[in-house]
Design a protein around this nucleic acid. Structure first.
Length: 845
RNA sequence: GCUCACGUGGCGGAAUUGGCAGACGCGUACGGCUCAGGACCGUAUGGGGCAACCCGUGGAGGUUCGAGUCCUCUCGUGAGCACCA
């Protein structure tokens, strides 16, 4: 039976044995500056995984994909003489643990502890070379003390537009510092999720539903903590430039931040003192503005609406407020809105235009008000047609396109100030014209909103903030950490009041002051964990200065040299972490302006049916089962052999068998089974020189594996190692020296097998401590190369030619070739193309 | 709807700057070794054709002596954004 089947090689004994040895010897510990083992001559390399959320389900085959890639890099870099920082930890605060706790009645701290034990043992079983001395957990008070400390730095600083930097709040000269702090409290319409009993960040809402759980989310005004990430919008876009990230991720971040250039224009209101500012990217269409629209929630609505329009306006506003985001987008096709009764004056032509409210204008973007130019904006056109508003063409399209609904660039018409100008020039001219008259100015707008930073939950970092007389005040550094109170009942209250409100004693900070009841979102802990890894036990500072400088060193803006993880964090974690990092950098705590220099996204692994793995489909592959049957090395190797790291690819158990067979062949290359059924060193192993062809394949393998690891092309590196093994499989004698070199190459991929075989060959030291081999180009060069002979671009024959052959000799060889001369006999030759060492192409008339 | 990425055998995938398409692995077929094998070893394996040869990288054009690779259009798949003025 299959369970009784003999193992192709004894991985079940080898693997635990070496994992134990690595642990005991602490072989993968990276010494910090100041430690005894620290060697200042070694260069550093920081290779990081996105640390997991330790869920109850345990490790998924998707996790080890990126982890194996980083482990190969880490092991490789160590052998190249680098001091390698390769840490692992747990992002353990957050909703799932709490949701589970509510269901099971078990405290999230207990669940978290159990899950961490499980995750850690699973990771150890795969043989990853993490420096476990640096393990961190975001829910440890020793860790979140510093998360809270960073919050204090953010709270106690402001963004100075003059220096384009965050600065301590004491440098602010204005009257009310609370207006400019990078952390502030605001009454804002937020994403309220009744099911989860908390508000969510925009980034956590997908299609009007919560990202966690998929529950409906509604808009509701609430008092919340916000972080002023918008202050960094420009730098977050500009400084992407110096990073080695996939173009797609850079684009995603740029789109999310959503920079657009245009102008702000001020409209007077007829018979009213108030003015309305609008943002537009097309100030050149100002003459075509035939009406205005305010967001229903716009604060001016109350002031300008006329007596007789009040009832419809009120009714419309109430209806919009009740709509969830989902409804608002679902109903997007059908425009709605009502007239306020008020009129604005178009500053360009003094024309009176009606002011409407409609929910297609969003309060959160721009100024929450627009000039509507139906002739040259799709949405305005649709609205104008529905409500019979005038449409006036002011841009002439270049071709024969229909001018109504044309949104591209053309030539301005019906616009006295800019008539005849190309759109780009018209924009410049009209903006200057408005600026001169004090009616408007050039402006840049961002889609990015400030980060909603508070959650009405239990399982998160409490804010280091107290309230007194209705005002917030930050705690002193010395009062950290603020540990959450023990609670019997941590369920959401359902009213929007945080569960911490139930801890009556804890709330009371002093006679007059009470604690902030919200907690931070899950992202807080992961915003800076890569810094803590540099110095995880430091209790004086969030990271020691020497440690930070050492691990961040390098000739580029980023701190971590290589960061591998999933695309799902393209705009969440990766944007938030950059923001925090920049604040800390501005305040002088860090030596580099960016957290992650090189970013690589591993592709999703699909089930055997090429569908996304899911419980309901029943196509989930459990890493434990694979390791049980084929061993950790086969599991690692298969994860890398499947295909390019960044590509989405389906799992295949047959494929695992394939790499497992390869590993068994490696084993049998050096080991044979004796009469008693015990494995012993093969007698074919001899201390002999390599044959020329063997030497060539060895050096080709060193070259290919080295280059492929550098470019993260692990699948082709493995192919090359298979070619190597195939070349030696039937050799009568196996040169020991070639095997030793090969085991070093194999080590990053299959560390257990290579360690065991290395030990069997009895050389000194551990294979992981060997220097990485180098190849000699000389051994790769042949005396002759095969070239292709073509006629009219079609391959007609192949032949060997000296690598020293001249162009003329190439051509002569082709002409004298039997097949070729046959084909060109009596024909006129138009041209002969020679690519040395590659081909000769004879082109006939 | 907009933006981006990707389409190569029965399957996963290889292919510096445009230069032998299909490396390596899976699967399949045949053979060997075996009491046996879903083990191991070997040979073959893009399609068509007895063959010479012809066809072939989603489809249609183009540039070039030469295109999987570059350009245009088109179809399909995946991801992201989605009233952003």
């Amino acid at each position: 039976m299959s369970s009784e089947r003999r193992k192709p090689y004894p991985f079940d004994q080898i693997e635990p044995k070496w994992q134990k040895i690595w642990d005991e010897r602490q072989l993968f510990h990276a010494p910090n500056p100041g430690e005894k083992a620290f060697d200042s001559k070694k260069r550093k390399f920081y290779v990081l995984d996105m640390f997991p959320y330790p869920s109850g389900a345990g490790l998924h085959v998707g996790h080890p994909e990126g982890y194996t890639a980083t482990d190969i890099i880490a092991r490789y870099k160590r052998m190249r003489g680098f001091n390698v920082l390769h840490p692992m930890g747990w992002d353990a605060f957050g909703l799932p643990a709490e949701q589970y706790a509510i269901k099971s009645g078990q405290h999230p701290a207990i669940t978290t502890r159990e899950n961490v034990v499980k995750f850690k043992s699973q990771l150890k079983r795969i043989g990853f070379s993490y420096d476990w001395q640096r393990e961190i957990n975001t829910t440890d008070p020793g860790y979140f003390k510093w998360t809270q400390w960073i919050f204090l730095q953010i709270y106690n600083s402001w963004f100075n537009p003059a220096t384009n930097n965050a600065e301590p709040i004491k440098t602010y000269r204005g009257k009310n510092p609370d207006e400019v702090r990078l952390a502030y409290v605001a009454d804002v319409p937020v994403n309220w999720c009744p099911e989860l009993g908390t508000v969510l960040a925009n980034e956590e809402v997908v299609d009007g539903k919560s990202e966690v759980g998929g529950f409906p989310v509604v808009r509701r005004p609430m008092r919340q903590w916000m972080l002023r990430i918008t202050a960094y919008a420009e730098r977050l876009i500009d400084e992407l430039e110096g990073l080695d990230w996939p173009d797609g991720i850079k684009l995603l971040q740029r789109n999310w931040i959503g920079r657009s250039e245009g102008a702000e224009i001020e409209f007077k209101i007829d018979n009213h003192d108030a003015r309305i500012r609008v943002f537009t990217t097309r100030p050149d269409t100002l003459y075509g503005a035939t009406y205005m629209v305010l967001a229903p929630e716009h604060s001016l609505v109350d002031q300008i609406v006329t007596e007789e329009q009040w009832p419809v306006v009120r009714e419309y506003r109430e209806r919009t407020a009740r709509k969830s985001d989902l409804e608002r987008t679902e109903l997007a096709k059908e425009k709605t809105g009502v007239f306020t009764g008020a009129f604005a004056i178009n500053p360009a032509n003094e024309e009176k235009i009606p002011i409407w409210i409609a929910d297609y204008v969003l309060l959160g973007y721009g100024t929450g008000a627009i000039q509507a130019v139906p002739a040259h904006d799709e949405r305005d056109l649709e609205f104008a047609r529905k409500f019979d508003l005038p449409i006036r063409q002011v841009v002439q399209p270049p071709g024969n396109e229909d001018p109504i609904g044309f949104v591209g660039d053309g030539v301005a018409i019906n616009s006295p100030v800019i008539d005849g100008l190309e759109s780009r020039d018209a924009i410049r001219k009209i903006t200057e014209w408005l600026e001169k008259r004090g009616l408007g100015k050039r402006a840049i707008n961002y889609k990015l909103r400030d980060w909603l930073f508070s959650r009405q939950r239990y399982w998160g970092e409490p804010f280091p903030v107290v309230w007194q007389d209705g005002k917030h005040r930050a705690l002193d550094e010395s009062e950290l950490p603020v540990v959450p109170p023990p609670l019997e009942d941590y369920k959401p209250t359902g009213t929007g009041e945080p569960p911490l409100a139930k801890a009556k004693d804890w709330i009371r900070y002093s006679d007059k002051a009470t604690r902030e009841l919200n907690v931070m979102p899950q992202w807080a802990g992961s915003c800076w964990y890569y810094l803590r890894f540099c110095d995880p036990q430091n209790d004086k500072r969030f990271v020691g200065e020497d440690a930070e400088r050492y691990w961040a060193a390098g000739n580029h803006p980023g701190t971590v040299d290589l960061y591998i993880g999933g695309t799902e964090h393209a705009v969440l974690h990766l944007l938030y972490a950059r923001f925090w990092h920049k604040v800390l950098f501005d305040l002088g705590y860090l030596s580099k302006p960016e957290p992650f220099q090189r970013l690589v996204n591993q592709g999703i692994i699909l089930g055997e049916d090429s569908q996304k793995m899911s419980k309901s489909r029943g196509n989930i592959v459990n890493p434990d089962d694979v390791i049980e049957q084929y061993g950790a090395d086969a599991f690692r190797l298969y994860e890398m052999f499947m295909g390019p790291l960044e590509q989405m690819k389906p799992w295949s158990m047959r494929g695992v068998e394939g790499v497992s067979r390869f590993l068994a062949r490696v084993w049998r290359l050096m080991m044979t089974e004796n009469q008693a059924g015990e494995w012993e060193l093969s007698s074919a192993l001899k201390d002999v020189d390599l044959a020329k062809s063997q030497n060539k394949v060895l050096h080709a393998t060193i070259k290919k594996v080295t280059e492929d690891i550098e470019s993260l092309s692990f699948n082709t590196a493995i192919s090359q190692m298979m070619i190597f093994v195939n070349a030696f499989t039937n050799a009568e004698t196996i040169p020991v020296s070639a095997m030793r070199t090969f085991l070093v190459l194999l080590n990053p991929f299959a560390p257990h097998l290579s360690s065991e075989l290395w030990a069997q060959l009895k050389p000194k030291g551990d294979v992981a401590e060997q220097p990485w081999p180098t190849y000699e180009e000389n051994f790769l060069i042949e005396d002759e190369v095969e070239i292709v002979a073509q006629v009219n671009g079609k391959v007609r024959d192949r032949m060997y030619i000296s690598i020293l052959a001249t162009t003329e000799e190439h051509e002569a060889a082709a002409r004298s070739n039997v097949k070729i001369s046959e084909l060109i006999k009596g024909k006129k030759i138009r041209k002969v193309v020679v690519v040395p060492k590659k081909l000769v192409n004879i082109v006939l008339e």
